[in-house]
Design a protein around this nucleic acid. Structure first.
Lengths: 369, 369
DNA sequence: AATAAATTGAGGTACGTAAATCATGTATCT
DNA sequence: AGATACATGATTTACGTACCTCAATTTATT
């Protein structure tokens, strides 16, 4: 016994250890033909079993399924879709305007629309007016099932939207919310981060980065009508109030995604509170914020945590104006949404871990370009 | 003029604005047939042009290519591979042993081996002895072109490895390094993070998290024979010495990925330096580190930044023993390596941004499970 | 003009799966 | 025994592309 084990071990060390799931040297596609042959049934029967068509004895179904598992058959996803003449039509609805983050999303959708046809997927985008629930409802109601497989949209949490989503889902179109969600709606999936957790993360960073442990922190947001901004602020407040009692959070400045307005608000805040030691930038209008800080030469004294990696925030991280940026990877979100529409359309499984959007933290040191 | 503009604007607002790259309602696959018809040539000629076969006039090539661009033809990647009878065989070489991070990689490769056949890709894994350059060289030399399209391996930087990679590449197999790279070698691509930047990131976090700005910091590594550990320490040292002069970095403790040994080393360090305020855990053996900290009840006093999100480090983040964990997403790395082998095999382009592995920072607040 | 060479077209087969038709087999019920 | 339902097999077409052969046409060369 001992000898035997030693022999094996030795052999493993000198040659190599093949993990149990290795295919070995005869890697070859396992097809329906192989299944048919192994199960001693015809192709037609295999097809009936695989596609849940009637007219097969329970015992035969069982046998085919066993063989499928045994020889490791996986349906060739693409060949199947080709035969089915199936393709996927995906419509993105992205707010227009000069919000830099939304611009990144638009760019990604555009890139996807050029690559995805290779996977029998057609991606198009419509711009919708921002902060406009009615427009969104109109858009959603406009969509017909045979034109679109799934709709991916940045949800504005306005009255009527939830109902429009319901109508959409009932028409057989797959609704997927992007970046900001409508909980308890009929959307099939939400692609985005947990904004409360993001706010908590911001608070932890700011709380630990700030040196004296005592002082005032300003919160600069786009609009408290946006659910994600509200959520972020909520998470932020949670952590600050429970763990950093020395820090006083000032009332929110709402800059409405406008750089000029934001700049004025921040400058006013800097004047009123010379002891300001931190800023949490919940939403867009980073340029206004940066201008205000630089105008008062406060880049180094005030610790800033912001959201979304854009050209401006990247630059601000590099030159030390921002201390940390929390990001939600736009390319990843777009790709994830597309994969999810396909998965929901096929009622097939998807890789949970791949579709969970991470709350990315960027410092000057781990920046990517 | 003014009227015209106003009219347009108004229309956009009431209905919706279709971005220029939208496909509209007639989303349909553009095939070689469409190209042939539009260019008024036969399918055979289109095929000759697309696949660079000889026997076509320059003018005709030009015409076909123009039409391809005009009507936006994209080759159906999968149908093409099917017709070509092409498939991809990918071998991963992952160090064996109980390093938790490597275990995660192995798991991901296993998962991939089950899903990838759908994309005509066969993934297998061999375990190789860790820290063993000779074994790696043997493995690499063992690989034949017709058995394997590409090899993805965690590179040990030992003598002879660079040459083995060269031989491999010359045999027509695509070498891809994973997690730790061999720069200036013939590997087609490196999938992993910039470890120097990761070290810098760790230093920035530790430097800003530490309260008094003054004190000793220990560096706990696996082995200074591992290039990635050396790089991380280098980056760490860089930032600490230039920006946090109050912090004294103690000589590296090499725990050789062994929990017991690491625990003893850390305990010794805690005894020798009661004023220890921080630990940078460059490599594995997190369990040993955690045990040592808890044994001396130093979880809360010592600020710890570690690498790699595993069950242990996740738990340590949750209970406050660790303050930050720097991660390199294993599932993403495995998927990226697979996509890259395919891209290099086809000499086709890939999405840079998707293949760049990020240096992920996790705090208690942005943990994912 | 005659010949050779280059270019283009027409058509077929293959890849792996879906979906349909039609034929054959087998058990069940009257 | 005959009718009926069910189970299965055999065969075909289609999807979009690659690649092959053979014929037909155009162009260049002598």
């Amino acid at each position: 016994m001992k000898f035997f084990c030693d022999f094996i071990k030795n052999d493993l060390r000198t040659s190599f250890f093949v993990l149990p799931y290795a295919h070995g040297k005869n890697m070859k596609r396992v097809t329906v033909h192989d299944v048919a042959a192994e199960a001693k049934v015809s192709l037609a029967t295999v097809d009936r079993v695989l596609n849940g068509r009637p007219g097969v004895k329970a015992a035969t179904i069982e046998r085919v399924n066993t063989v499928v598992k045994k020889i490791g058959f996986t349906r060739d996803w693409h060949a199947a879709n080709m035969a089915k003449r199936r393709d996927y039509k995906i419509r993105f609805l992205i707010p227009e305007g000069d919000n830099a983050f939304m611009a990144l999303l638009r760019e990604e959708v555009k890139a996807a629309s050029q690559v995805e046809p290779q996977r029998r997927t057609f991606v198009e985008a419509n711009a919708i007016p921002p902060f406009d629930g009615e427009a969104l409802v109109r858009e959603l109601d406009n969509i017909k099932k045979d034109e679109v497989t799934g709709v991916v949209f940045v949800a504005t949490d306005a009255p009527g939207v939830k109902e429009a989503i319901k109508r959409l889902a009932e028409r057989g179109v797959i609704p997927i919310t992007l970046v900001s969600d409508i909980p308890n709606s009929m959307r099939a999936h939400f692609v985005g981060i947990d904004h409360i957790a993001a706010g908590r993360t911001a608070a932890s960073l700011l709380g630990r980065f700030i040196k004296p442990n005592k002082g005032k922190v300003a919160v600069v947001a786009g609009s408290m009508l946006l659910r994600d901004h509200v959520d972020r602020r909520f998470g932020f407040e949670q952590v600050i109030s429970s763990e950093y009692q020395g820090i006083e959070v000032l009332p929110v400045c709402e800059g409405l995604d406008d750089n000029k307005m934001t700049q004025l608000l921040v400058e006013a805040s800097l004047k009123t509170h010379p002891d300001l030691i931190g800023i949490y930038n919940v939403g867009a209008a980073k340029r206004g914020l940066i201008s205000a800080l630089k105008a008062h030469n406060k880049q180094d004294d005030v610790c800033v945590v912001a959201h979304d990696l854009t050209d401006d925030s990247r630059e601000a991280l590099r030159d030390g104006t921002f201390d940390a940026v929390i990001n939600q990877d736009p390319p990843h979100q777009v790709r994830s949404a597309i994969r999810l529409v396909r998965a929901y359309a096929d009622k097939s499984a998807f890789e949970e871990s791949q579709e969970r959007i991470k709350i990315d933290i960027f410092l000057r040191d781990n920046l990517i370009d």
